[in-house]
Amino acid sequence: MKLKGFGTSDTARGLTLIAPPALFALLLLAVPLVAIFAFSFWSQDFLTIDYTPTLKNYREALSEPLYGQLILRSVLIAGAVTLTTVVLAFPIAYFVSFHVPANRKSLWIFMITIPFWTSYLIRVFLWKVILGYNGVLNSTLIGVGIIDEPLTFILYNANAVVITLAHAFAPFAILPIFVSLEKIDRSLLEASRDLGENHVMTFLRVTLPLAVPGVVAATLIVFIPTIGDYVTPRLVGGPGGLMIANMIQTQFLKLNNAPMGATLAVIAMAIVTVIALVFIFLNRRWLKARS
C-alpha cells in the first residue's frame, strides 16, 4: 500500500534531512569550540605557537588583577543590564498581553521588534550622541531648565553601557515574557477575583508566578549575549566601562596573543554556563516546589 510507504524509514529520512545543518554546526561550531579550548592550553611567542600544554594562561588570567577586574565588571554590568531590561520590559509585555485588543497584539509586537533589526552599530553610536556632554539629553534638559550643568555620569562609564544595552536587548526580554503571559488561562484570574483577592494580590499570587518561566528565559537571553558584548563598551563605555570582549579582541588582533585570548574566551564561556545552569536549577526547584 502506497500510504504505508509514505511512513516507512522515517528515521532514515529524518537523519538525511538533519545531516546538512548538523554537519555544518559540527564543523563550524563544535570543532572551533574544541580548538579554542585547546588553544587556551598553549602559548605563543610572537608568531610561533608553542604546543606544549601549559596552565600558564589560566594562572596569568587568575593572578593578573586587570583580567579579574574585567571579568568581574562584565558580570556586574551584564547583571545590571539584565535586571534593568527585564524590569522595564515586564510592564510592556503585561500591557500588550492584557490590555491590547487581540487583533492589535501582533502589530504592537512588530513595533517593538522593528528598532532591534536596524543597524546595531549606528544605534549604539546614536546613544553616544544622546548621552554626550553636549548631547541631545543634556541640551534638552538644560533647555527645559531642569538642570543647569550637563550631566556627566551618563557617558563614558558603566552607566552608559547599561542604558545602551538595556535598549539593544529590550525585545529579547519582552518577547519571552509576552509569550508566557499569553499562555495564562484568563479564567484563573477571574477565579482569584471571585475568591476575594484584589487586583494587586491577583497579580502577585497568580499572574507573576505563572509568568516566571518567561522571566527566566528573558533573563538568560539578555544575560548571555551582553556579557560578551564588544561594540557598546568600546563606543560609550570609556576606560572604566570596558568589558571582557574588548580584552579578548585586544589579545587576538593587537597583542597577537591568541592563546591568552582563547583562555579569556573559555573563562567567559565557563562563567556564562555556570550562571545559566545555577539559574535553570533554581527555576526547576522553584517550579517543583510549587507543583
Binding site: L29, L33, I36, G228, A262, M269, V272
Partner: peptide, 11 residues
Amino acid sequence: PEIIVAVSMLV
C-alpha cells in the same frame, strides 16, 4: 555570545 563564535572560528 557572538565574540565566542568569532574568535573560535578565527582560531
